[in-house]
Design a protein around this nucleic acid. Sequence first.
DNA 1: GAATACTGGCTAAAGCTATTAGGAAAATGC
DNA 2: GCATTTTCCTAATAGCTTTAGCCAGTATTC
Lengths: 211, 211
Amino acid sequence: MVRAGLTPERLTRAGAELADEVGFDQVTVSALARRFDVKVASLYSHLKNSHDLKTRIALFALEELADRAAAALAGRAGKDALAAFADAYRDYAREHPGRYAAARLRLNPETAAASAGVRHAQMSRAILRGYDLTEPDQTHAVRMLGSVFHGYVSLEMAGSFSHTAVGTQESWAWILDSLDALLRSRGPAAGRTAGGGSPMPVSDPEFDRQG
Amino acid sequence: MVRAGLTPERLTRAGAELADEVGFDQVTVSALARRFDVKVASLYSHLKNSHDLKTRIALFALEELADRAAAALAGRAGKDALAAFADAYRDYAREHPGRYAAARLRLNPETAAASAGVRHAQMSRAILRGYDLTEPDQTHAVRMLGSVFHGYVSLEMAGSFSHTAVGTQESWAWILDSLDALLRSRGPAAGRTAGGGSPMPVSDPEFDRQG
DNA sequence: GAATACTGGCTAAAGCTATTAGGAAAATGC
DNA sequence: GCATTTTCCTAATAGCTTTAGCCAGTATTC
C-alpha cells in the first residue's frame, strides 16, 4: 500500500486549511482523514485525539498571526505601529477566518504559556511604549486594545456591520484614530503601579506575563 | 404513560440553563432529552433539529439580554447610560456564559431581522444621542462601542485577563471613562452623512437597521 | 358517553463522528 | 537479509442526529 505520508505537521496544516474552508468547528478527524484519502483510525497514530488536533491548529494559527504582526510592526512606532498591528489582525481574520477562530480556542495554562500568545502580549506592550503610559494605565490600555481589535474583527466577520452604507474601512480608520488620540491624551499622567495585562485573540491567561 | 409536558418554550429555557452549565457548544438534543428523562426522538416533535434548538436558545438569550439592557438604561443618559449599558452586557455574560455565547450564534438574515438584535442596535444609538455625534461618526461610534464591549467580555470570559495583578474591574472602569471622554471629544464636530451602524454581540447583519 | 381525530412520547434503524485494540505491510537499521 | 519500527488498516464500541412508524392517552364531536 502506498503510504500517505502523514505527519502531525501536515495534518495540522491541512486542518488549518480545512478550517478556513468549512469553519473551525467543522474541523473533524473524519473530515481530515477523507481529505488525505485515508481511514479515520490512521490519524490516531499522529494525533492524540480530536482536541489535540484543534489545539495544534490553534497553536499554528497563533504563531502565524504573531509572525505577521511582528513583520507589520518592524520599523514602526506610534500610531503607525498601532495601525499596522491592528491591520495585521484584521487582515489575517479576513484571509483565514477558520484559523482566526482557531486562535481563539481556549488553551490550558501550560500550553498557552508555551504558545506564541506570549509574543502577542509583548508586541502589544511594545506599541504602547510609544505612548508613555505609567503602569496601571498601560495594562488597562493593553486590555482595551485587545478588546477593540478582537471585538471589531469578530463582529465584522460575523457580518454585523454589513447592513449599512458606511464602509467598514472608514469605521476602522476612525476607530484607530480615536484610539491613538485617546492613548496620547492618557499620556504621562496619573497612575500607581501594578502587574501586567493581556491583549489579543490569544487563547488563555498565558500571555499576560509580559516578556 | 405520564407525559413530560414538553414544549418548545420549556425546551428552549432548559437548553439555556444547560448551556450555562456545560457550555453552549455542548448543548445537544440528547443531553436535553436526558434532562427531561425522555427519549431523544421525542424532542423532534417540538424541535426541527439540533440547529433549531440552538437558534431558539440564541433568540431567547438575545431577548433576555435586551430586556436587561433596556432596564439598565431606563432613566439614564450620558456616561451614566453608557456604563449601565456596558455593565448589563458584562454582568449577563458573567452570570450566563452559555447564553451569552448563544447570543453570538450567527443567525440567517431573516431570523436576525426579527430578533431582539434590533433592539440592541436601537439602544446603542440611543446612548450616543447624548453625545451629539453627526452621522458617519455615530455609526463609527456604534461599531466601536460594540467592539469594545463584546471584545472585553469575550476576552475576560476566556480568562485572558486573569494573570495579572491589575483588577479587571479597574480596567473596565478605565475603559468606560476613556470611551466617554472620547465620545465627548468627538462631539459636535466633523462628519458628512451616511447609513446606520451596528453594535453588540448580536448574531448577524440584521440589527444594523436602526429603529 | 362512545366514536373520532390528534398529540406526545416510544421503538427501531441508519448514518456520522470519536476512539481503542490489534494486525499486516512498508520502511529502516545493522 | 532479518529484526524492528512505523504507518496505515480492519474491527468494534459508543455517542449524537435524524427519520419512520406505532400506540396510548387527550380532546372533540355528535
